[in-house]
């Protein structure tokens, strides 16, 4: 962990709110990518994102810095998101209209429309992917973690991560082809 990060962490541990805000602002985008990637762009991602930081805050005194803050937060975000997925599955709340398809306000050019459609299709495809493949793809391709870091975060052997990456991408291609045909 960098010295600057250690300092911010020490201040946050001593109850400095500004320091904790700095941590939130620094890692917000990474947590957003993870949570949104796993859950889709649904109404509750903001809540799960907040919960991630609240859990971190509650356990900040136990955090010894063995891993970086980002890795630790990503791990919390993944666990909370997977729990939320299980809860959704139970309640059968996952409806297609919750998955990002929202069009931004105002008219868009044809190129923007095409890019947005592609983005929506990929996000929809990700939601159709088995969570064990989805999580690996998100960490590697969205959050930009190396395969080794991904393995560490998910506490999986490197070989399993590589195999899930390959199978996840192959499955995504099949899903996207199906979406394209429709």
């Amino acid at each position: 962990m960098e010295t600057a990060e250690q300092e911010v962490l020490a201040r946050a541990k001593s109850g400095d709110e500004l320091a904790f805000r700095t941590i939130i602002e620094k890692y917000e985008s990474r947590v957003a990518a993870t949570v949104t990637g796993i859950l889709g762009n649904t109404a509750d991602v903001d809540d799960i994102g907040q919960e991630t930081f609240v859990r971190f805050y509650q356990s900040i005194h136990r955090f010894r810095g063995d891993s970086s803050i980002g890795t630790y937060l990503t791990r919390i975000a993944i666990n909370l998101s997977l729990n939320e997925l299980k809860r959704r599955k139970k309640k059968e709340r996952l409806r297609p209209e919750d998955i990002p398809g929202d069009s931004p306000p105002g008219p868009r050019s044809e190129d923007e429309n095409r890019a947005s459609d592609a983005r929506v299709a990929v996000q929809r495809g990700l939601q159709m992917l088995d969570p064990k493949f989805r999580t690996v793809l998100i960490l590697r391709l969205m959050d930009g973690y190396s395969t080794r870091e991904t393995a560490e975060i998910l506490r999986l052997p490197l070989g399993t991560v590589l195999s899930r990456l390959a199978r996840g991408q192959a499955r995504m291609r099949e899903i996207l082809e199906t979406i394209d045909e429709k």
Partner: peptide
């Protein structure tokens, strides 16, 4: 495909996220 997945990522919560979390 990998590029499309990377670009589909949504990297923000609603505005004011840090304030709400605090």
């Amino acid at each position: 495909l990998r590029k499309a997945i990377t670009e589909s990522s949504s990297r923000t919560f609603r505005p004011g996220f840090a304030g709400r979390t605090l």
